[in-house]
């Protein structure tokens, strides 16, 4: 209380009373005679309110919902709302959904763990290309000469994810567009026309074994120039991306502009971004309890009254 009282008095202009040396010495005397408080009681100004029974201080960084009804939680801990259980989402994708997104790291520099880097990376179809921050970015293509300069961060070359060249260095490619069967059955091409797969491999790739990119006019491109390939059909997005309204700039907000390539966020063979689970919702303020999901608060009055006259089991 001493600090705050002192400051408010200073604004009132009552200096002679507040900081009279006699009072000050008396105050210092009181400081010494007072017993020392706990070591962690750093801010002695305010009293901590007693935590309410519903509040768990050990909620951790995830900060799960406080006072969630036990019936709303399933066995595996994932809370499901009634509308989420019954409502059918419009994302009819059949592969597995990742529960966690890219974890936030508050490190100043991006470091590569050497142990993790030496481990063989297990590729998974559908992963986006991982940006390689250790390599200097590749400056933008000359087609983008009129936009503010930028560098595109290269991707880590992951041959295992699309092992086409394992066979197609010697095997002849069947050029006919068709539904892919064994041994291509684990590959899913859902790019173009709302995921119906109107594209074919050789719309964007070479015929030869290197499997590089080619534009519709036949110009060969490196994988780090994939945005030029995307620009053929998505000029608006690419323009926004080059100016910074689409995509993501990393590390700084002025100076050398380093942006992620299209394939860092969009898996090129199915560019829609998969839905996934969100970070858990925030808890309510300390000492309070969420009541927006309690039925006696959330339901309208007529439903609450009607529930008294309803037969059990009736909706």
């Amino acid at each position: 209380m001493a600090c705050i009282a002192g400051r408010s008095i200073t604004h009132a202009g009552a200096w002679p009373v507040a900081f009279c040396p006699v009072l000050l010495l008396a105050f210092a005397f009181l400081l010494f005679t007072a017993p020392p408080a706990a070591a962690d009681d750093w801010d002695m100004d305010w009293e901590d309110p007693a935590p309410a029974p519903g509040y768990k201080s050990g909620a951790g960084s995830t900060g799960g919902p406080v006072g969630a009804e036990p019936s709303a939680s399933t066995a595996d801990g994932s809370e499901s709302r009634p509308d989420a259980a019954t409502g059918e989402d419009d994302w009819d994708w059949d592969w597995e959904e990742t529960d966690t997104g890219p974890a936030y790291k508050s490190d100043t520099t991006r470091r590569v763990d050497p142990a993790a880097a030496s481990m063989p990376k297990v590729p998974r179809v559908g992963e986006t290309a991982e940006p390689d921050f250790s390599v200097s970015p590749k400056s933008g293509h000359q087609l983008f000469a009129d936009v503010p300069g930028f560098g595109v961060i290269p991707s880590i070359k992951d041959k295992g994810m699309h092992p086409c060249s394992n066979c197609h260095t010697w095997a002849k490619s069947n050029l006919t567009p068709r539904r892919l069967r064994v041994p291509h059955d684990n590959f899913l091409l859902q790019h173009g026309l709302h995921g119906k797969g109107e594209f074919w491999c050789f719309t964007c790739h070479h015929l030869d074994g290197a499997g590089g990119l080619r534009t519709l006019e036949g110009e060969r491109l490196s994988f780090d120039d994939a945005y030029i390939l995307c620009a053929q059909c998505h000029p608006g997005e690419t323009r926004d991306w080059s100016f910074g309204a689409h995509g993501k700039r990393v590390d700084n907000w002025q100076g050398n502009r380093r942006i992620l390539n299209c394939t860092a966020c969009h898996y090129q063979h199915r560019p829609n971004i998969k839905p996934r689970k969100a970070v858990p919702p925030p808890p309510v303020r300390r000492g309070l309890e969420r009541n927006d999901r309690k039925p006696h608060v959330a339901a309208p009055l007529w439903e609450k009254i009607g529930a008294r006259y309803r037969e059990p089991g009736q909706p």
Binding site: R81, G87, W91, R276, K277, A278, P280, P281, R290, D292
Partner: peptide
């Protein structure tokens, strides 16, 4: 709703 907690987001 700031406390939404769906299985996956975005919700329909």
């Amino acid at each position: 709703d700031r406390y939404y907690d769906h299985r996956t987001v975005p919700a329909k």
